[in-house]
């Protein structure tokens, strides 16, 4: 059964839609990469999925329910890591974790065990009582990642996670993702770091001008672009050139 179903979704900020009849699915245990040029509609897609925007048409289901059917169950099924870390300046790192645990109804024991492991993994144990104003961009990102992973939902939605993280942070993140996948969770990850996407993602969705330009495994994509040996980087560039060609034609 698919964890996330995006069905013929058309939507945008104004009446003029940014997304046009978007359709894709994410199955259990899948890590799916969402890639596309700036302005292709990645962030808008994510905003629709997390329920911050309502589609004009079509529907989105997480764990089999739409947002309007049950906001609580819908939200409980995923956690989200935004592109820019959004922290509460007035809460310490520990309080961010506690707040998340309270919101998602974790027990104290579960909270203690999970947070201890995450703090160790991301090397933030010594910063429990720090406020965000003292964190670097990468540390702020780590706080967001830890909060999202603390919840252990069935779906992780991660927007451009690698910017600002140091190499060890990136490795930890990828290890965590692999581990969660092994335990049955799914991940939707938007990124511009294509070699990483190519290496780690089970499937890739290429967005272009608010439509799904291509989706599937690397082999599927190579076939779709008719470039049998190309890397994801090369496929991406060729898509750009295609667009230039369209613009000049």
């Amino acid at each position: 059964m698919a964890i996330l179903e995006v069905n013929e979704v058309t939507g945008g900020y104004t009446r003029k839609p940014v997304l046009h009849g978007l359709t894709f699915e994410i199955g259990k245990n899948e890590l799916v990469g969402l890639i596309g040029l700036n302005g292709a509609g990645k962030s808008t897609t994510i905003k629709h999925i997390i329920g911050l925007m309502n589609p004009h048409q079509g529907e989105i289901k997480i764990g089999g329910v739409t947002f309007s059917e049950s906001p609580e169950a819908y939200r409980k099924a995923f956690s989200y890591i935004p592109e820019t870390p959004i922290l509460y300046e007035e809460l310490t790192l520990r309080e961010h974790l506690e707040l998340t645990a309270m919101a998602y109804g974790l027990d104290k024991d579960v909270f203690e065990a999970r947070s201890a492991a995450l703090l160790k993994e991301f090397m933030m144990e010594k910063r429990l009582n720090w406020f965000p104003s003292h964190f670097s961009k990468g540390m702020r990102q780590k706080v967001m990642i830890m909060c999202a992973f603390l919840v252990e939902p069935s779906l992780y939605i991660i927007d451009e996670p690698f910017v600002g993280l140091d190499p060890i942070g990136i490795r930890s993140l990828l290890e965590q993702i692999e581990e969660r996948k092994a335990n049955g969770a799914s991940v939707l990850m938007s990124t511009h770091v294509l070699p990483t996407a190519e290496k780690y993602c089970d499937r890739i969705i290429v967005l272009h001008e608010g439509k799904v330009r291509a989706q599937g495994t690397m082999d599927d994509l190579r076939k779709a672009f008719n470039r049998p040996k190309a890397t994801l980087d090369e496929l991406y560039i060729s898509m750009t050139e295609e667009r230039d060609y369209e613009q000049h034609a």
Binding site: Y88, E90, L91, E95, M102
Partner: peptide, 21 residues
């Protein structure tokens, strides 16, 4: 301090927002 289990975290958050901002 944080109360775990089925609680709403908003008071936890708002009290801190009010006192610390």
């Amino acid at each position: 301090p944080a109360k775990f289990g089925l609680t709403t975290p908003q008071r936890f958050l708002l009290t801190r927002t009010l006192i610390r901002t």
